[in-house]
């Protein structure tokens, strides 16, 4: 689905990603974990085709990242809930949906998915932080995306909502979609099929949660991460 080979990215003279090589299989939830500043967002932007890369190769669905043909197939939501504050929830979704040739779901279904049906006619401006994050997530469900790149989608959400969203992510993966989900909360790793641990722009480890636990002999993901850092 996604492959990066020897990826190097520099932003404002800072070398952010160093010779990064990784592979993401179709239909999995790939967790991208690492402390803030580890390069998660830059990696996601690179895969989404929004980032000028210095060297290396990124291929998504056998196309070079950023290819025009990918615009119907990739969805990306940034950390800073990118929605129109001066439109209602349903107007936001209707607008983004109208940019795609084919939509799998109706705007109403999408709001239902993120539990915002009751806020459909509310202006995005007046949403709470968590609601706004869910609206931004909803904008990635328009069209018929095959790869969803979600930058910290569950940050700041209460536990009940977080469980709901992970259920939604699982449902999407069962439908054959691939999800790349970043988080700096290690416990969220449990919910992912596969994990990439990023530190200082390098891949510290890649594997399933159980494989990483077995490798380090630790049960809590925090400890696994610390153990892997010490090992490196």
């Amino acid at each position: 689905m996604v492959s990066c080979v020897n990826l190097n990215v520099t932003r404002d003279k800072n070398h952010i990603l160093h010779d990064l090589t990784l592979e993401i299989q179709r239909g999995v939830i790939m967790g991208l974990l690492g402390p803030s500043g580890s390069g998660k967002t830059t990696l996601m932007r690179s895969i989404a085709g929004l980032q000028v890369i210095e060297s290396g190769q990124i291929r998504v669905l056998d196309l070079v990242a950023g290819s025009k043909a990918l615009r119907h197939k990739i969805a990306y939501s940034t950390q800073s809930a990118s929605v129109y504050s001066d439109l209602t929830c349903i107007e936001n979704i209707r607008y983004f949906a109208s940019l795609y040739d084919h939509n799998e779901k109706t705007p109403e279904q999408i709001l239902e998915d993120v539990d915002l049906s009751n806020n459909a006619k509310q202006m995005a401006e007046s949403l709470s932080g968590g609601e706004r994050a869910r609206l931004a997530l909803a904008t990635t469900l328009v069209g018929a995306p095959e790869l969803l790149i979600l930058d910290e989608p569950t940050v700041g959400l209460d536990p009940v909502l977080r469980v709901q969203l992970w259920r939604l992510f699982n449902k999407l993966a069962e439908q054959g979609k691939t999800l790349l989900v970043s988080s700096h909360v290690m416990e969220e790793a449990e919910n992912c099929h596969d994990l990439i641990l990023l530190r200082n722009g390098r891949v510290l480890a890649q594997g399933t949660p159980s494989a990483l636990r077995a490798r380090t002999g630790k049960s809590r993901m925090d400890d696994v991460f610390i153990n892997l850092i010490e090992e490196a």
Partner: peptide, 13 residues
């Protein structure tokens, strides 16, 4: 600044 332009740039618009 709100990031909506970036959201649009990866869409077919």
């Amino acid at each position: 600044t709100s990031g909506t332009l970036e959201r649009l740039m990866i869409s077919p618009l």
